[in-house]
Nucleic acid binder design. Sequence first.
DNA 1: TCTACAGATGTTAGCGATAACAGCGCCTGT
DNA 2: ACAGGCGCTGTTATCGCTAACATCTGTAGA
Lengths: 347, 347
Amino acid sequence: MFDQGDGAVVEHKTSRDPAMTDVARLAGVSHQTVSRVLNGHPNVREQTRLRVRAAIAELGYRPNKAARALVTGRSQLIGVVAQNSTLYGPASLLAAFETAAAEAGFAVSVGRVNVLDRNSISDAVERHRDQRVAGIVVIAPTASANDAVGAVSAGIPLVTVDGDPERSTPLVTVDQAAGAFAATRHLLDAGHRTVWHVSGPSDWFDSLGRIRGWRSALETAGMEVPPVVPADWSASSGYRAGQMLARMPEVTAIFAANDHLALGILRAMSERGRRVPHDVSIVGFDDVPEAAYFIPPLTTIRPDFHAVAKETLELLLAQVGDGDVGAPQRTVAPALVQRDSVAPPTE
Amino acid sequence: MFDQGDGAVVEHKTSRDPAMTDVARLAGVSHQTVSRVLNGHPNVREQTRLRVRAAIAELGYRPNKAARALVTGRSQLIGVVAQNSTLYGPASLLAAFETAAAEAGFAVSVGRVNVLDRNSISDAVERHRDQRVAGIVVIAPTASANDAVGAVSAGIPLVTVDGDPERSTPLVTVDQAAGAFAATRHLLDAGHRTVWHVSGPSDWFDSLGRIRGWRSALETAGMEVPPVVPADWSASSGYRAGQMLARMPEVTAIFAANDHLALGILRAMSERGRRVPHDVSIVGFDDVPEAAYFIPPLTTIRPDFHAVAKETLELLLAQVGDGDVGAPQRTVAPALVQRDSVAPPTE
DNA sequence: TCTACAGATGTTAGCGATAACAGCGCCTGT
DNA sequence: ACAGGCGCTGTTATCGCTAACATCTGTAGA
């Protein structure tokens, strides 16, 4: 029955990852001490701490997050619910948030949803709760999404992004109105008598906020407020709006609700022989990467998605800590990016 | 010492979620039987099964994934490593994969990476392993990403998407060459003597594959192969390439490596007074949502991202099951979408 | 009638971490 | 010299689940 000892000689006896007890044995301490070192507990002798760290490094030990999640009831995971689209704004927001969360040591689990209605969002939230996520972020740019969020928020840190500014639950948004105000103001400052607005879909808060800011800038300046030209977010709808506006000689300045709309408008103007910015000035919104390469390069409003992501994370983590932080709303002011699509009116 | 019974009367005594034992107690069975019902184990009497299901429904019980992950060593999570960009192809791929995984009951954890180098990718992969993900998907469209993946794949199911078709590890890609071949062939069929190509960045496999397919179509047809016009993926670089090509009267057909390049080329042609498709025919690649609204609507190649996502998931799950499936490479053929940017050459 | 076996269920033992408490030195104050 | 406290470490229980084995029932075959 004498065992040749092959079990004792082999260092990595099986493929099993090292656990905390393995580290403890190697360092000559208890697993609890290892845990304390890992969690930065103060009452550990420096020498012990070093020994444990050395053992961790030697074994290539990495803590099992599932075990930790089980005992603490929370994982280092944040769930995000987002619509299944590639629209620039939401997609950028999502990417920025993933980056910010990773920097803070959180993993991000994304639950895509095809339509932003109550059932879909509620399902996605429940799936995340099953994972024992630390918190949930919902990107809810439309009215229906906003209503749905109101119905599900319960018992877990939750932050809405890009939702209704009037919400009473934690929310972070780009200050659409401020951006629109700045855009409109910029056109008025250039000497235009009024500014036309091609807007996004009316069930998006982004659209409403931008309309509000635009109108407010005109009213503040005592200028006439022309009717809103409705569109969706697409270049094609911008093109159609542009075809109409190009036929109206009194139109000298346009604020487009996003850069894609602006692109369509540029195209329509160009086809009608109305030069930008000589005959017509245009400002967009979003600062998509291509905006600097439009013809002419587009003056636009740049939302700081990185800042939005950071605020969102902060708001979420504050809830994890205190359980309740009231219902703070935070807005992030966008910046005007001046390029070559704005000039004083001629004549 | 008589207790008024407030503990017994209150159904939801605390905020604690119901656990398997709670369900078991209510159904009058052991927690193991509940587990068997949940996992579809065959040896459970139908009547018992119903009783358990009723108890589950009554309590609103949802299994704790962390506990399951701890005991099985694997979570129902799939990690995705992707670059922090909003380029249409990778972004669409990611969204499609998230949807496909959700349909299969998996959550998706996204690890964004700013540059696709070895360290970043390796870090992201390790972070996912800490979460005990069931498998990892790396979107690796560039050479550096591909090398990095080669260095880290170890001991966990891993599928590369959009990587080097010559890889020896599991991989799913769009068949770039086939798409490019079809695009080029389509232009030749329209009667053009040859087809020029504006390509993407040379460190992307997508670019290389599209060049290969284009060249192959020309050679197969016995046509002259003009020099590749290099660009990146942006509309602006397409515009610059287009300015050059517009000056060359012998250029009657262009295959652009993606739709944004095509957009820039369209713009340049329009400015130079070369009409599309009357004077010059153009085919793009990607079928971005706006492509149907370009002027003129763009004939392009549509990759089936949904199919790529599905194949990727299959390949991943196959590895989870068997541990090893060899090194299958799967490609998904894209489709030609005919619109109005192609016509026979004039004269 | 009794054994054998299979199906249905229960019991026990972990998975790998944290939480709570216990114990052991050593310094301090009196 | 001794109680008390603090700093460091170890021991034990626990989270909610699955795996493995044990037990119990009923039925078929000898």
